[in-house]
Simulated assay, not measured.
Amino acid sequence: MRWLAVLLACLVAIAPAAAQKRIALSFDDVPRNPGGFMAPDARAKLLVRALAKARVKQAAFFVTVGNLEKAGSGDGAANVACYVKAGHVIANHSFAHQRLSGMAAADYLADIDRAEAWLKGRPGYRPWFRFPFLDEGGKDKVKRDAVRAGLAARGLANGYVTAESSDWNIETLAAAAKKDGKTLDMAALRDLYVESHVEAAEFYDALAVKTLGRSPAHVMLLHETDIAALFVDDLVKALRAKGWEIVTADAAFADPIRELRPDTPYAQGTLTEALAWEKGLPAPRWYERNDLKIATPLFRRRVLGEAE
């Protein structure tokens, strides 16, 4: 039987390791408008502390440079510097946060250039551009391809997203409820935020495996919100409990999917969805809570205790 034990040991040694689920965190709309729970400067400080507590070595903060000039956004430049000092990186989320589908490609690229003028050369800068609203031109393929070519000419890579759960909607609903004097169940708010993002990560990873035959390094879309500052530590713990490794944004954007340019009838949304659509996988190719008709009633029932 000794030969059998040796054979089994050899088989174990050569068997492929189970695929590791990997994900990086990214935050859009920096600096974001005030939320319902704290001032923007306090939010930035709490978010830095929460990421450190969660042992997230490097997240990506996509800066909407025009927001730096808006009243009520706090000391946005100082907060961006604070993120970088903590080991995180910054990238371009446009100057004015407009939809590509609603403007000319040349004007859109000029807006990107205006943001680059502030960003390029700063500590922590990465040459990534994330489309506001994940809108890459909608059904206008000529415009889509013009901007793709414009980004390449500028040395900018697409700061794509592979997993998301419309956290901006949870934040908006929570802030509005607080402003209206409603009682929020904060534990339920935390659980909804965490659960939605973990489920989204699992959904999009399964979709990616069906599409690509492997689990890529994912990039999760979050926003610089009060609820992110409050609950990102809980989110990271829950992701790790489900077998996810939190990787750096640099590592995630080095995945080979960065080279893919899917051709779909409508260009908007996650890269995961676009790749699945291009391959012919049937809808739905998006996590269900990105449908606000599902997400909003769920929030009202669980966080506000309102009847259907």
Rank of each mutant, 00 (worst) to 15 (best):
R2Q: 11
R2E: 11
L4N: 07
L8P: 11
C10S: 13
V12G: 09
A13F: 05
A15N: 06
Q20N: 01
K21L: 14
I23N: 04
F27S: 04
R32E: 09
R32Y: 10
M38A: 12
K45I: 03
V48F: 14
A50E: 15
Q58P: 07
Q58L: 10
T64L: 05
T64R: 00
G66R: 01
N67M: 08
L68S: 05
E69M: 10
K70V: 03
K70H: 01
A77N: 05
V80F: 10
V84F: 02
K85V: 12
A86F: 07
V89L: 05
F95R: 07
F95V: 00
Q98N: 12
R99M: 14
A110L: 00
I112K: 00
D113S: 05
R114V: 01
A115P: 03
P132F: 01
G138W: 08
K141I: 09
K141L: 12
R144V: 09
A146Q: 15
N158T: 09
T162V: 02
T162L: 04
T172L: 06
A174Q: 03
A177E: 05
K178N: 12
K178M: 14
K182F: 00
T183E: 10
D185K: 01
A188C: 05
L192A: 13
S196R: 15
D205P: 06
L207T: 00
A208R: 08
L212M: 01
S215N: 10
A217C: 03
L221S: 03
T225Q: 14
I227K: 13
L230P: 06
D233Q: 15
L235A: 09
L235F: 11
L239Q: 02
L239S: 06
L239R: 02
R240T: 07
K242V: 08
W244Y: 15
I246W: 03
T248D: 06
A249W: 02
D255M: 05
R258Q: 05
A274Q: 15
L275E: 10
L275Q: 12
A276G: 08
A276V: 12
G280S: 08
A283G: 13
R285C: 03
Y287N: 05
N290S: 09
D291Q: 01
A295V: 05
T296K: 15
R301W: 03
G305I: 03
G305D: 03
G305A: 11
